[in-house]
Simulated scan of single mutants.
Amino acid sequence: MPEVMFAGPDGRLEGRYHHSSESNAPLALVLHPHPMHGGTMNNRITYNMYRTFEKLGFSVMRFNFRGVGRSQGRYDGGFGEISDAAAALDWMQMVNPNSGGLWIAGYSFGAFVGMQLLMRRPEISGWVSVAPPANHYDFGFLAPCPCGGLLLHGDSDEMVPEPAVRKLVDKLNTQKNVTVDYRVYAGADHVFATHAEHVSEAVEDYVGKIVARKAMALAAD
Rank of each mutant, 00 (worst) to 15 (best):
Met1Tyr: 13
Glu3Trp: 02
Ala7Gly: 14
Ala7Pro: 09
Pro9Arg: 13
Asp10Cys: 11
Asp10Gln: 08
Gly11Asp: 07
Glu14Trp: 08
Leu29Gln: 00
Leu29Lys: 00
Pro33Ser: 07
Pro35Gly: 04
Pro35Ala: 06
Met41Ile: 07
Asn42His: 13
Thr46Glu: 14
Thr46Ala: 12
Tyr47Ser: 09
Phe53Ala: 04
Glu54Cys: 15
Lys55Met: 14
Leu56Gln: 08
Gly57His: 10
Val60Met: 02
Met61Ile: 14
Met61Pro: 10
Arg62Pro: 08
Asn64Val: 01
Asn64Leu: 08
Gly67Ala: 13
Gly73Ile: 11
Tyr75Val: 07
Asp76Ala: 13
Gly78Val: 04
Gly80Asn: 00
Ile82Thr: 10
Ala87Leu: 11
Ala88Trp: 07
Met94Glu: 13
Asn96Asp: 10
Asn98His: 14
Leu102Met: 11
Trp103Lys: 05
Trp103Asp: 12
Ala105Leu: 07
Tyr107Ser: 09
Ala111His: 07
Val113Lys: 04
Met115Pro: 03
Met115Gln: 14
Leu118Cys: 08
Arg120Cys: 00
Arg120Pro: 00
Arg121Ile: 02
Ile124Leu: 02
Pro132Lys: 06
Ala134Cys: 15
Tyr137Glu: 14
Asp138Thr: 12
Gly140Ile: 01
Gly140Trp: 04
Phe141Val: 00
Cys145Gln: 08
Cys145Pro: 10
Cys145Lys: 03
Gly148Asp: 03
Leu150Ile: 03
Leu150Lys: 02
Gly154Ile: 01
Asp157Phe: 02
Asp157Thr: 13
Glu162His: 07
Pro163Phe: 05
Pro163Val: 00
Pro163Leu: 02
Ala164Ser: 14
Val165Asn: 12
Val169Thr: 03
Asp170Tyr: 01
Lys171Trp: 04
Gln175Gly: 02
Thr179Asp: 10
Val180Tyr: 00
Arg183Leu: 07
Gly187Ser: 09
His190Met: 09
Glu197Ile: 09
Lys209Ala: 15
Ala212Arg: 11
Lys214Thr: 12
Ala219His: 12
Ala219Leu: 15
Ala220Ile: 05
Asp221Glu: 15
